[in-house]
């Protein structure tokens, strides 16, 4: 069956404008520009072939992110084994995690930099390295929420997990990232280590 011009036009209007966002996401998943470009191309090819499955009026960006992550996870399955995260998701443990309300970073910096301005001093490459070092489940949640601004519900559907799990992954991912950047800032002398409680 030949593709109609309408089909192609609709795809170009709805899906192609999200190319920058999909590439940004793919780069954090795949790690290198070459691998990210391959991932983006595969994502768009699959999306185009499956275009009839897209529901008009829903978020095309989320739909593309879902395809992109599925392609990435399938490629990874064929490649080397990866580190599985240990999900601590019993309500009690989740409450304990979220119950740790005062950010440990803040306990360390509150007398010298309470508003966390040290984050500004850190070079972008170091931040990207720290993001890439997160387990994929945390990395995806943090990128989709903090950078792409997707609602919890959409991230949950994308990742095939309950909203509570998304919240837990965001909490742990953000805290882990903050700790790495805090330790880097201490190492670089942007802030002094005042507390041994960060850990």
């Amino acid at each position: 069956m030949a593709d109609s011009p309408d089909r192609r036009a609709a795809f170009e209007a709805e899906a192609v404008p999200h190319l920058d966002a999909v590439y940004r996401f793919a780069l954090r998943l795949a790690g290198s520009p070459d691998a990210a470009e391959d991932l983006v191309q595969e994502t768009y090819l699959r999306a185009y072939r499956a275009w009839e499955q897209f529901t008009p009026g829903t978020n095309a960006k989320s739909w593309l992110f879902t395809i992109c992550r599925n392609v990435f996870l399938r490629q990874r399955e064929r490649g080397q084994r990866h580190q599985e995260i240990v999900e601590r998701e019993s309500p009690r443990e989740l409450a304990q995690g979220v119950g740790n309300l005062v950010n440990p970073i803040w306990s360390s910096t509150n007398d010298q930099d309470p508003e966390g301005q040290f984050f500004d001093s850190i070079v972008d490459d170091e931040v990207l390295r720290a993001i890439d070092a997160l387990p994929e489940e945390y990395r995806t949640a943090v990128v989709l929420s903090d950078v792409e601004g997707l609602p919890y519900q959409e991230i949950a559907e994308m990742m095939g997990v309950p909203v509570g799990t998304v919240k837990s992954r965001l909490f742990r991912g953000r805290r882990q990232l903050q700790k790495v950047l805090h330790d880097f800032a201490v190492e670089m002398g942007y802030i002094e280590q005042r507390s041994s409680e960060v850990g």
Binding site: R24, V127, V142, D146
Partner: peptide
């Protein structure tokens, strides 16, 4: 200050991510 710290952190993550332009 807790809110400001979280906002500074998020701004940094966003600006670092924005630097990686599409080829």
């Amino acid at each position: 200050p807790h809110l400001k710290m979280e906002e500074n952190f998020r701004r940094k993550v966003q600006s670092a991510m924005a630097r990686a332009g599409t080829p």
